[in-house]
Simulated scan of single mutants.
Amino acid sequence: MPAPEILPDTRDGHARAAALLRGGALVALPTETVYGLAADARSDTAVAAIYAAKGRPSFNPLIVHLPDLAAAEALASFPGPALALARAFWPGPLTLVLPLKPGHGLPPRVTAGLPTVAIRVPAHPAMQAVLRAFGGPVAAPSANPSGRISATTAAHVTAGLGDRIAAVLDAGPTSVGVESTILAPAEGGTRLLREGGLPREAIEPLTGPLLLDTTPGAAVEAPGQLSSHYAPRAPLHLGGQPQPGEITIGFGPTGGELTLSATGDLAEAAARLFATLHTADALAEARHAPAIRVAEIPETGLGRAINDRLRRAAAPRG
């Protein structure tokens, strides 16, 4: 299979991406969070190709991307504060896990057989343009091999997935840099399934205190809940004293060979997280370094999402 076609961020590029999706192909598309590996969410064959290309476990559900709230309401019910959350934060880096409506038209593989579906309305203009040109729901997990570092540039996508996909729409680096926050709203309260690009401080005025449900359990309800995820090839250590030969990633006054943000800005650190991990991993491989070590990040705001990714990246590999 040839290398993926690189599509420009133009009307012609958007139309080509939509045409490939209609033909059942896999296309990597930019969102404001990370690049997603997109397929027609109504096609079981196309969705199966996502799992095969990523090496993704079949019990790990996918996020369905839609252009607006009206399209989401055709697929799912909105219990509790779900509608208020959608109106406040869509389009944007928020995914809602919602009960499916009868006649939704999605194959069970999209939801991993669950009675719920994870839905997001992305804000990236290129993704919005492709969604509208395509005219249907698009399943799109992060465009990287399962368990490895997420892709925030087209180059990351091609390095990770190569000839396993048909095309990449190159719109430059993503702006948020960490995946969406995932919530499961219900009448009795809203559970936080994954920290992400929308911090708790912005959410809780609408929901009240979130019910924290971020540790993996027996059942996976949403993407990003596996204990080992986002991992570089080299071992990753968090905080502590750097050891000889390690690749160091700093934050704020804690310097390193690389840094997430020299000024200690959490938004900058989130935007740079995965790109910095890709760079550190390449350095570690070139130098045969024993590990990568990342400075401590404050557990507040976007720092929670950064630390969530780093803890999973540092977890023991299965």
Rank of each mutant, 00 (worst) to 15 (best):
R109G: 00
F251K: 08
I249V: 14
T45C: 12
P298D: 06
D281F: 00
A313Y: 08
A186I: 07
G256T: 04
T215H: 14
T152P: 10
L277G: 00
G177Y: 01
H237N: 13
T259G: 03
A269Q: 11
G252F: 04
T259P: 13
L260K: 10
A222W: 01
G188K: 01
A222H: 01
L206M: 08
G13I: 02
P61K: 02
V97P: 05
P99S: 00
S58K: 05
P316E: 15
L20Y: 03
A15E: 12
P122Y: 02
L26S: 09
L283Q: 13
H124G: 01
P57D: 03
R56C: 11
G160S: 10
E257K: 10
A15I: 05
R200F: 02
P67T: 03
T276M: 03
A305C: 12
A155H: 12
P173Q: 01
P122H: 05
P290V: 07
G162P: 07
F59E: 11
L183M: 06
A270V: 13
I247S: 07
R309G: 03
I247Y: 07
L302P: 10
L66K: 08
A267H: 10
R148W: 10
P209S: 13
T276D: 01
P57A: 09
A19M: 07
F274S: 01
I306M: 12
V294M: 06
L193W: 02
G55W: 09
T248C: 03
K101A: 15
G55E: 07
G301F: 10
L236A: 06
A284V: 04
A275L: 10
L226A: 14
A139C: 06
D40Y: 05
Y51A: 07
G255R: 15
G147Y: 08
E73Q: 15
L183I: 05
S77I: 02
S150E: 04
